[in-house]
Design a protein around this nucleic acid. Structure first.
Lengths: 157, 157
DNA sequence: GAACACCCTGTAGTAGCTTTAGGGTCAAGT
DNA sequence: ACTTGACCCTAAAGCTACTACAGGGTGTTC
């Protein structure tokens, strides 16, 4: 029976993560330092593959590294009850709902602004630019500030 | 007729922006360096107040500083037509729509996961943790990766 | 002349990576 | 034996949009 042994590149390909991200998780203490070959290459076995899969899935659900740290801690203590896990997840679901609502309000604002300039005319008389220059940004309340729209950059591979 | 002359703190209060953010926009080239008093204090006049208002409103609509740079460039060329402005705004609205859809898919995933553990039991048998450890994260397609949920930290005043 | 609110510069820290620089390892090909 | 090329290594810097800090100057009031 041959046990699983992957170099970092193979692991990265299987889990569809960039190699540098895996090393980053190690630096951050989410992944323990793996065994090394004589040539100083990292070698990953099944438990580490599982752990990284867990981390990747949590990130795909957009949890922060701190939320994931907390879940890993709970995962590593199998005899406790899992109320803590539920709490982390509930809090995260709340985050997501709030973001969705904020973005919907934002979209309404942006579309209203866009409507003001359906035909191209000159910049000087552009209703969009004048709308954006208004002290209180039109009459509608300002989009709740401080919620980024722009996701992470598309990752390579 | 007294023209407007504000120190940075007064400007910050009027526009409800932190002072450091205003200085940051200057370092970033979004705001031109203002006049200074003998004591080396920044002094802002009406055109600069307008410009900062514009920037603040764009940020409230969650545009990136690069998008805003582009809009400012267009705003500074008043004789051109404003197709470019529309393009920036349309692209931004697209961003927002994509984010909303991605977050909705995410929410469905998270709620499905949460349902797997309605009652508290031990971590060892927790369906949430096992779900998160699955190689492909349940059967549903992975939430499109790379879209942060967590907004900026709440700013001071 | 001392207290105080305000202003200045420059630097570092935040999250979650990505990129770059400058090298070492190892299997295959000539 | 040697070179090519794919892969691996570390350390440090860069990204966004700020925020916070250290260490100091200004200006008004008591």
């Amino acid at each position: 029976m041959t046990t699983i042994q992957l170099r970092i590149g193979e692991l990265a390909e299987q889990l569809e993560l960039p190699v540098e991200t895996i090393r980053y998780y190690e630096r951050e203490g989410l992944m323990p330092p793996p065994r090394r070959t004589d040539g100083n290459y990292r070698v990953y076995d099944a438990p580490l593959v599982d752990r990284l899969t867990f981390i990747r899935n949590c990130r795909a659900l957009d949890m922060t590294l701190n939320e994931i740290r907390e879940l890993l801690r709970l995962r590593d203590a199998p005899e406790q009850d899992c109320t803590g896990v539920n709490d982390v997840l509930d809090a995260h679901i709340d985050h997501v709902c709030e973001r969705i609502n904020a973005l919907r309000r934002l979209k309404v604002q942006l579309q209203g602004l866009r409507e003001r300039c359906r035909q191209a005319h000159t910049v000087e008389e552009c209703e969009i630019l004048s709308g954006l220059s208004a002290p209180a940004l039109a009459s509608t309340p300002l989009a709740s500030r401080h919620l980024p729209v722009h996701g992470r950059k598309g990752s390579k591979r």
